[in-house]
Write a protein that binds this DNA or RNA. Sequence first.
DNA 1: ATGAAAGCGCTAACAG
DNA 2: CTGTTAGCGCTTTCAT
Lengths: 341, 341
Amino acid sequence: MRNTPPKPRAGAASTNRMEDVALEAQVALVTVSRAINHPSQLAPRTLEKVQAAIQKLGYVPNLTAGSLASAKTRIIAAVVPTISNSFFSETIEALANTLDQHGYQLLLGQTFYREANETKIVEAFLGRRVDGIVLTGIHHEKTLVERLKASGIPVVEMWEHGPHPIDMLVGFSNFDAGRAAARFLIARGYRQLGYLGGYEHRSQQRLQGLRQEAGQHANVSVHAIETASPSPIENGVASLLELKKQAPGLDAVFCSNDMLAASAIYECARQNWKVPGDIAIMGFADLPIASACHPRLTTIRVHRKAMGESTARLLLDRLQGRPIASMAQDLGFDVIGRESA
Amino acid sequence: MRNTPPKPRAGAASTNRMEDVALEAQVALVTVSRAINHPSQLAPRTLEKVQAAIQKLGYVPNLTAGSLASAKTRIIAAVVPTISNSFFSETIEALANTLDQHGYQLLLGQTFYREANETKIVEAFLGRRVDGIVLTGIHHEKTLVERLKASGIPVVEMWEHGPHPIDMLVGFSNFDAGRAAARFLIARGYRQLGYLGGYEHRSQQRLQGLRQEAGQHANVSVHAIETASPSPIENGVASLLELKKQAPGLDAVFCSNDMLAASAIYECARQNWKVPGDIAIMGFADLPIASACHPRLTTIRVHRKAMGESTARLLLDRLQGRPIASMAQDLGFDVIGRESA
DNA sequence: ATGAAAGCGCTAACAG
DNA sequence: CTGTTAGCGCTTTCAT
């Protein structure tokens, strides 16, 4: 049935091509293309004919070919430390979902908290000529930043906030979140603050914030233990005990993650420490578990879903040539006072 | 510097092309291609020359073009209900990581527990000519199954087990897991079993298993409440209270998810119910929180990471023409007896 | 070991 | 509104 059946090459697909549809519908190949991509440009009757042919042949357009011809892939790549952390999985979920609704798809990369991985992964994504790139945080290898800036490809950095984005930015200040936590705890009368968190960059920023705010108050001290993993649970609980041993007067602990905080609350129960009587616990993120805890967890809510959605919208606006309202969006955070602190 | 600088088309990339590298290295274009894809076929000196040129120009091969020419995309698509659920995020994490190590990348789709979404998403993936597809579960729309079978594309279904896979299968029997939970609870002396879980298909299978095992014992009853969402926390806790009201003699509850179980344990503390004295709680999955709980959570461990890795390996073996040891892998599960039941 | 030629399946420009 | 022509940048035969 083929028009020109030349010696079929190795990679030759056994699938129907646009030409087959054109033949079937008795129109030119380009008309089929238009029926798919710009249906409004066609006469209703022509459109129908083509659609019928597509239907009949079960034709599925080859987007790879389309991408090559149009220099647009309709793929967005996102790089996060790991999707096992609810922090990022919910943002990615929202991002992918929003993109999907507009015909874009998400290619996923994970760094496992290694900067060098990030550079390598993005390199691979650039090779795929993705239409946009989403990065976690604002700290990247210098070569990566340069490459990205040179490429002119839309980039969104998320989950942090800072003065010199590569391109666009959607996040919040982790430092300020740490300060807010300190302010909250201090206002509630706690004086010996502890910090439980990993070595991850954003956690560290929150710790800095905590320290700086605490430093502005007499009689307020900060005790921190970094656990070995970036967002730990088991280690975290061990660290709580260690922390309490080092600073017996510890009266409140700010955890870098609600899951860690939830585990800490369990550990306090195990130790027979009253929360918040003997020790107050504050979390971070406002994950679902935070409101299920007993006592309910005081925490800092960050807008995980909104970050994903805003990131998607920014990218879509840019790709579709719409004006960008604000290149750097600070979505902030909310201190949620519950029972645990 | 271009060889033939014709009127630059719209989508014309400003990037270096293979030809630019060839010019720079004074070799034929195809030699550059080989330097990248089959370096062993080249004379060492030629290879060096080309690599130097690539380096000098900062050349990044266009994988879209390569994909079109070779009919291979090196992209694997995976569809899960949602990555917000740790169940799937850890499997996807392992999958993506393993694929990445072999030069494959992951395109992510989420159904949000709607079968129809799955069909639509996979359709889009097929348009991208992905090299393989990963599906969650063994229940799909009929049209999807047919399309997939007809396409001949490698498919792995995961997180369940059953007799008629579309192609390959990596998972475990949720039904058997439910039975195992019942057997465990009954052996520990519990008689009025409760079930807390969502309407999700795999949860339902576990409930069926629980019921069927319970049915084989006199004096053992099962009380179930389905919560409104597929894997709920807040509702789940409310349901626990409801369940206990309906069946005051309830002595053990099997939760469809460790997070739900952890929340249930918190709720019991709030109600002043001793766990496991007044009520035993059993979870599912063995998430990190399970071993941090107080009391530590008795649960069923499933091999989330291993499922992702096996899925990747199966796909890679198939794509690279290696023989497939077993097309359907049952990775099983382990009952982990801790303190809560 | 290297090269020349011929597409992969589609979209964009330019007519008509 | 529809068609013709010319590639997108790469990989694959097939030849040397």
